[in-house]
Design a protein around this nucleic acid. Structure first.
Length: 245
DNA sequence: CACGACCCCTGGATGC
DNA sequence: TGCATCCAGGGGTCGT
């Protein structure tokens, strides 16, 4: 099987994509002979998850039919990849460099570090909606539907606003909002709306911090006006007509 | 070239 | 109670 005998020597991430890097010493012999060297690119999609299981621990019943890959580790634990809706995926590359040119090649800068200048130059002066640009992983890597809405609200920018209408200050506020919203969500353990679970199976806590996502028709937490709902970039979008311009 | 529309997939919610 | 239908969304592919 792929990765049999491989030694995991590094784990990397860009945006929503994860890399498991193996190589160097063969775990089966431990004699320093080079073991299989692969780079596994993983994307969780919406419902994918990695789980660690003890030697005799069983998968939760609901996930068992959706287990797509299992690796047995040298300490007896198993690393399991499950994905009920199969929007996620795994792909092997012969080296980290090949992975970076392949699966990661088109990706923009990581969302946790993206600057206003980078957003402005990569989105360009197009008529495309700002939210559609945020969801485009080649503009910035790591922003999904929930955090695009939250970041637009935080920055006071309408998600439907054309990129061409954004000035330097607006891009700066938007990039700062993307970084802040994601940092806060990570601190809270992510957003469990329905499927998402942390690697130990527990739920995240950031759903309680959502200010617009999932709140269409309810009162804006900043001004009290009714939040609007629509479709932008083929995704459900919620915004405040008063607070965002 | 740029960008929008459509499709993949499953389970939970909703409607009858 | 049970069945049919709709909806959620990351991203690949296709069409405009």
């Amino acid at each position: 099987m792929l990765l049999e005998g491989a030694v995991v020597c590094d784990v990397a991430r860009r945006g929503k994509r994860l890399a498991i890097v193996t190589g160097a010493t063969d775990a089966r012999t431990g004699d320093g002979h080079p073991g299989p060297s692969w780079c596994l690119d993983a994307h969780l999609g919406m419902t994918g998850q990695f789980l660690f299981l003890g030697p005799r621990q069983r998968l939760p019943a609901g996930l068992a039919p959706h287990c797509h890959a299992t690796w047995t580790l040298s300490d007896g634990r198993r690393l399991v990849f499950c994905d009920p809706r199969r929007f996620g995926g795994l792909r092997a590359f012969p080296s980290l460099a090949a992975l970076q040119h392949g699966a990661w090649g088109p990706l923009g800068p990581d969302a946790l570090e993206v600057t206003g200048t980078e957003l402005a130059s990569r989105a360009g002066p197009s008529r495309r909606a700002v939210k559609a640009a945020l969801l485009d992983q080649s503009v910035v890597a790591g922003v999904g539907n929930i955090y695009a809405d939250e970041a637009c609200f935080d920055a006071g920018v309408l998600p439907t606003r054309p990129c061409a209408s954004m000035d330097e200050g607006a891009w700066e506020r938007l990039s700062a909002a993307v970084r802040a919203v994601l940092a806060a969500a990570i601190d809270a353990g992510g957003s469990t709306v329905r499927d998402f679970a942390r690697p130990d199976g527990t739920a995240g806590g950031y759903q309680a911090g959502h200010r617009v996502y999932g709140r269409g028709g309810r009162a804006c937490l900043a001004c009290g006006k009714e939040l609007q709902t629509g479709v932008v970039g083929q995704r459900t979008t919620v915004w405040c007509r008063t607070c965002q311009r």
